Amino acid sequence: MIQITAQIHIDPDELTEQFCRSPGPGGQNVNKVETAVQLRFDVARSPSLPEDVRQRLLRLGGRRVDTAGVLTIEAHRFRTRERNRQDARERLVALIARAAHRPKPRVATKPTRASKERRLETKKATAATKRLRGRQSGDE
């Protein structure tokens, strides 16, 4: 079990990993060894996630989530397959932990009378400055 929070655990069987060749430079080794990993997690059908976390994770996933609700994480930062695999899992855990955090609801507030007065005073000062920049009657 992969522990995300105290209440959320993910079964490793829910993850599918596919290994492929890493992009970018690397010499002869990069053309022969499949060290990059594509980690897939079916967010839409996972029994491990509560519904609110599932919705936030689908939104946070962005382009990494396809139309079927499968989250794909690609890792190819490191030279070894095992380290890339660990990196992909760490990134998945961080993303789910971020989705598990319930955002604080915004409380609408009204501006104070003093702040309204300050705003109006600033507007008056700006208007007066601009008025003085205009043509004077005896300029020509």
Rank of each mutant, 00 (worst) to 15 (best):
A88Y: 01
E51C: 08
A97T: 05
H76N: 14
H101V: 15
F78R: 09
P50V: 01
E82W: 04
N84T: 04
L39H: 03
V37E: 02
I96Y: 01
G27S: 08
I73P: 04
T72A: 14
P103W: 10
V65I: 12
S46T: 05
E34C: 15
P105C: 06
P111Q: 06
P25F: 03
D87K: 03
A75F: 06
K32D: 11
I73G: 05
H76V: 08
R91G: 03
V53F: 04
L92M: 03
Q86I: 03
E90R: 12
R98P: 00
T67E: 15
H76L: 12
R118I: 02
R89V: 14
K110G: 01
R59S: 13
K104T: 11
P103R: 07
R54L: 07
L57G: 09
F41L: 04
A36Q: 10
V53H: 08
R81G: 13
K110T: 10
F78Y: 15
R85Y: 01
V93M: 13
R45K: 11
R98T: 10
A97N: 01
K32H: 14
A88P: 00
I96N: 01
T72E: 12
R40D: 09
R91S: 00
P105Y: 04
V43D: 12
I96K: 03
A94R: 14
L71S: 05
T67S: 15
K123D: 10
T122Q: 12
L92N: 02
L95E: 05
E117T: 09
K32Q: 13
A36K: 15
A125M: 07
R106S: 10
L57P: 09
G27F: 09
I96E: 06
Q38N: 02
V107A: 11
E74N: 12
